[in-house]
Amino acid sequence: MYKVKVFITLRESVLDPQGTAVQQSLHSMTYNEVKDVRIGKYLELAIEKSDRDVDQLVKEMCERLLANTVIEDYRYEIEEVITQ
């Protein structure tokens, strides 16, 4: 079994209005050190071992459904877990 963590954020070139609003709020709380806030999505997938390559599978899922690569970037971490 694999535990996969997928992180999706808006691409650098795309303005993130939610992130901007949160940054402004942090500034008004005097956290002026904050220079950028990007809001994204976090997904956890549990994937069963099969004869298909897990890295390839996750990449495909990200490209086809989980992220919209027109405006979003993604990265993922794959961890093998031993099930009891």
């Binding site: 808006l10 795309v14 303005l15 209005p17 939610q18 609003a21 919209n68 027109v70 405006i71």
Partner: peptide, 17 residues
Amino acid sequence: LLEAGLLPGAMRRNKDL
């Protein structure tokens, strides 16, 4: 239609949220 790739581009949240 955008998600299906029948039209180019994507939608973001409205600028004022």
